[in-house]
Amino acid sequence: MTHVSIQSLTKTYPGSSEPSLDNLSLEIASGELAALLGPSGCGKTTTMKMIAGLLEPTSGDVTFDGRSVLRDKPEHRGVVMVFQNYLLFPYMSVAENVGFGLKMRKVNKVEIDNRVNDMLALVKLPGLGKRKPSELSGGQQQRVALARALIVQPKVLLLDEPLSNLDAHLRFEMRDLIRSLQQEMGITTLFVTHDQEEAVVLADKVALILDGRMKQYDSPDVFYKRPVDKATARFFGGQNFLNGNATNGQFKTSFGVLDLPIDCRRGTGTLTFRPENICVTGKTTETNTINAQLVEKIYLGTQTRLKLAVGTEFIHAVVNPAEVENLEQGQRVNIAIPPESLWVLTS
């Protein structure tokens, strides 16, 4: 079990004036599964390569249990990286691929064979050792790549977009497998993804990186309830942003006053709340009830999206289709926003 600390890590590629990764700091506790989340090109893979020793940082440090590993060669760091496109060695059999790390460590052949068989059973691919990677499905190739990484019992496991090349069904299966193996073996794991749902479901903690800078590093639910800024809220599907002023536990908007939770910041800012926290209600007695006009209603099968106009502002809601079955466009409706779902962002 290894505690990973990334301190002010920065990477500027030669010939580039802008850093690809700017001053990233985060702590990953022993045995934790953390996610680096962000759009393509935001520096996620660069971060992983620097942790693995495949790329030299421009500045900053990476420590494992308090010891800097920057001077350690990749093969001595105890970090294994699983790439997005698996990169199984095409001329080797599945068993040879899985046993590659042990062969490089000069483990004897009998032990390699035994451990390869155990590992293939663990990733639910028993008996496929003699096949070539080209004879496997995408999901099977992913399992082989995972087995090849886990067999060397790394201190730190890095997964680059582990589920992005899989179809929906395999994603669920693979997600569960990664989570269960990681917990079973207790390996400190960092994975990168551009899919916020994937990060939320799989990770203990998520680091959101936008434009090469880390915006927020928190447990997944905090990103929905307490995003640090508008960009973070937007990345996690936030759509409602109202400018105004927070004083005495209330937020003054252009159309009225809304009660805030106790721990909200004060002063001028932007009020945000999740579309799925809005209730369509017939009553006017509930806290933070607003009368709005239905502008747009889109049925999405398991949910219905509503666009509501309140004065000059628009509010977006996601509700149960049954609740709004009889609502029609242009109709006026009361909506309630529970105070605990409100959060004030800096302007």
Partner: peptide
């Protein structure tokens, strides 16, 4: 260079990554 990177992170030296990958 990614295949070599995989090999290095799996414990191969620079020479082993060249020779075996």
């Amino acid at each position: 260079e990614d295949y070599e990177s995989v090999a290095r992170s799996l414990g191969a030296t620079r020479w082993q990554a060249f020779r075996y990958v």
